[in-house]
Every structure is written in structure tokens, then in C-alpha cells.
Design a protein around this nucleic acid. Structure first.
Lengths: 189, 189
DNA sequence: TTACAAAACTAACGTTTGTTAGTTAATCGT
DNA sequence: ACGATTAACTAACAAACGTTAGTTTTGTAA
């Protein structure tokens, strides 16, 4: 049993509310009520509402960055790398589904250095993904469409997985990965 | 030249702010400032902040509903219908790009009957889309993957088009439609 | 030029917001 | 049994919120 800190509980509870209503529409009193305590009591564990958001968003962002670095470092083919990225997104979605909503919808409410470093991580991630696709086109493994269209189609799907995963939740993760790879890489017709 | 009402101007200005920060993070004072007037002056033209949101969201939602009804009514094949839906999304994105952000991210802040009717329109839309895919699988035009995975992959991409369209904005719409159809239907490898 | 309507203004309202200060109750190793 | 830590509490704050009321300015048509 690894002990879960009180701050961590707050982050988890808050993330569920953020997912439903968005960061700005959730008050610290809402978060406190969901935990069964008073709003002021939260401040024994956190320094600000902002801190909840940045803890949540940066944690997930780092997970994506690390995953991407792992994929880039490998010697697989571009298409195999894309497959690995699809699996990466599915794994992170399953393990951090609450945080992904905040990352997608509320990152712009980060402030200062948190915002800066998030945007950098996001840009780097996209640039790495784009380069993998370009490599695949160069080596003729991937069809010669505009790389931006391909990047966008895949990334949009992967980024909103969380909206859909819980609804049809009981699907086995490995089956989902296989289906996802098939649909995104080979199309549907 | 059709005259644009003051209320319409407010909706447009507000929608741009909503797109950047989300409905809850934008105050009526922010909207007023962006128009160069005082917050109270807005209420000569609107009855509430809520009204701005519902005007915006329901307008776009109806556009999707009408478009879907048109596609369903036709006698084309399932795959042709999917192609038409891809074009529908691109057309609406181009013409209502501000409203789509609100539709995607802020619909849950609708209230009362506006919320109810929006959810119904959305559910109906998805159900129609799903049935088209199922028909395509039955007739063996579409590969026999889980319909939900196919629906999700296509719809996620189309729904977030607005995030990406303006950034790479000056791509010709007809070229975009062709690329999109190719990538979504035939895959990338 | 006057009359009217449209659209702006100032001032204020009651609430809710995030947060701080100071205090009390519970838990725990010594 | 003790002191220390942890985590809750009440009370209050200044600022920002959506909104209303009443008034003044602006533009247009007679």
C-alpha cells in the first residue's frame, strides 16, 4: 500500500471536477465540498488553486514528453514509431484520464513559467511527431499527403480518446490498441 | 449588404474570447471592453451572458443537425455519405469556427431547455453517423472494425478541425476536403 | 428644430471568488 | 502523559462577478 498524500487526494478530486466543468467553472469551495471539508482547509495542503492545475497538467505533459523521447530514441521504422505513439496515448489515457481533460482544455489557464514550459513541451512533442511522419513519407512507407493533415488527423483522435474511453470503457486495452492502429493507419474502406 | 445587429456583434466578439479562454473565464466586462463599451451597456442588447452562449452554440448545433438530415435523406452509399459528412464539417468549421469552440468546450454551461435540446441534437447526430457506418459495414463497403472506434476516430478529427484550420489557415478548402477524405477513409500507409 | 428611439453612460446591488489569519481537535512517536 | 505535527475549523478580507436602475448622449426622421 503506497500512502497517498492529502494533496494528491485534492488533485484527484479536483481533476474530476475540472473534467466535468473546466478549471474556471470549479471553485475551491466546490473542491472542498467534494472532499467533505471547508475551502480554507485546502490551504493546509496546497498553496493556491493554480498549483492544483499545474501539478495536474505538467504531470501528464511530462509523461507524454518522456514517452516521445523513448520512441524517438529507438531504431524502429517511422510506421512502427507511429504505432508506438498510438499505444503511448492509449496507455496515458487509461492511467491519467482526468489529467488529460485539463491538459486539453485548461492549459491556457496556467501562468508564468508553468505556461511557458507546457507550451514548449507541447510544441516539441508535435514537432517530433511531424518529423516521424515526414521520415515515413520520405522513405515511402507513408502516403505522400500533406504531413500536417496526417499529423492532425492522428493527433486529434488520440487527444480526445479520454472523452470516449470511459463511455465504452470495458473494451480491452490491447484490443483497442490494435483496432486503433488499424483504423488510423490503414483507413476504413 | 445585410445589416449586422449590435447583438450579433456582441456574439461574435464574445465567441472569439470564449474560444481563447472558455466561457467561464470570460467576464461580461471582458466582452464589453473588447467592444469598447461598458459592461452595463451590453444589457441594452442581450438579456444575460447565458443568452450569448446559447445563441452561439445552438446556432452551430442546428447547422450540424440540418446538414446531417440532408445527408441521411439522400440515396448515396454509406461511404459517399461519410464523405459528405466530412465536407459538412469542413464547411461549418470554415463558416462558424468561433462557435465550434464553444460547442465543443462550453456546451455544458448551457442551462435548462437549451442544454436539453443541445444534448438531444448531439446524441441524434452521433446516432445517425453510427448508423451510416454500420450500414457500410453490413454492405461490406467499410472494414468490419468496431463501429464505435471508426465513429470516434472520424468524429474526433472533424470536431477539432477548428483548432488547426486557422493555424495552417490558407489551405484551399477543396484541397483540404480531398486530403481529409483520403486520410480518414483510406489511411496513411 | 424638435421628437423619438437607440445605445451609451454612472452608480450601485448582492453574490461569489480565492485567499489569509487565528484557533481548535485529532493523531502519533517518545 | 507529553509535546509536536497534521488537518480540520470559523471568520473575515478585498476583488471580481452578473445584473439592475436611472440618466445622458447620439443619431435619425418629421
Amino acid at each position: 500500500m503506497k500512502p497517498i498524500t492529502r494533496k494528491e487526494e485534492i488533485v484527484i478530486v479536483a481533476s474530476q471536477l475540472f473534467k466535468e466543468r473546466g478549471y474556471s467553472a470549479v471553485s475551491v469551495r466546490d473542491i472542498a465540498e467534494a472532499m467533505g471539508i471547508k475551502a480554507a482547509s485546502l490551504y493546509n495542503h496546497i498553496s493556491s488553486k493554480q498549483e492544483i492545475l499545474s501539478t495536474l497538467v505538467l504531470r501528464v505533459a511530462k509523461e507524454f514528453t518522456n514517452g516521445m523521447n523513448g520512441v524517438v530514441a529507438q531504431k524502429s521504422s517511422p510506421v512502427q514509431k507511429v504505432e508506438q505513439l498510438i499505444e503511448l496515448h492509449i496507455d496515458i489515457t487509461v492511467n491519467y484520464s482526468e489529467g488529460i481533460a485539463a491538459l486539453n482544455n485548461d492549459w491556457m489557464h496556467l501562468e508564468g513559467e508553468d505556461l511557458t514550459s507546457f507550451v514548449k513541451m507541447r510544441d516539441d512533442y508535435e514537432e517530433n511527431f511531424r518529423n516521424i511522419i515526414k521520415d515515413g513519407i520520405t522513405s515511402e512507407e507513408i502516403k505522400p499527403h500533406h504531413p500536417e493533415v496526417i499529423l492532425f488527423a492522428i493527433l486529434s483522435t488520440l487527444r480526445t480518446l479520454h472523452l470516449w474511453y470511459q463511455k465504452r470503457g470495458k473494451l480491452d486495452v490491447n484490443i483497442l490498441k490494435k483496432d486503433m492502429v488499424q483504423v488510423l493507419l490503414k483507413g476504413i474502406v
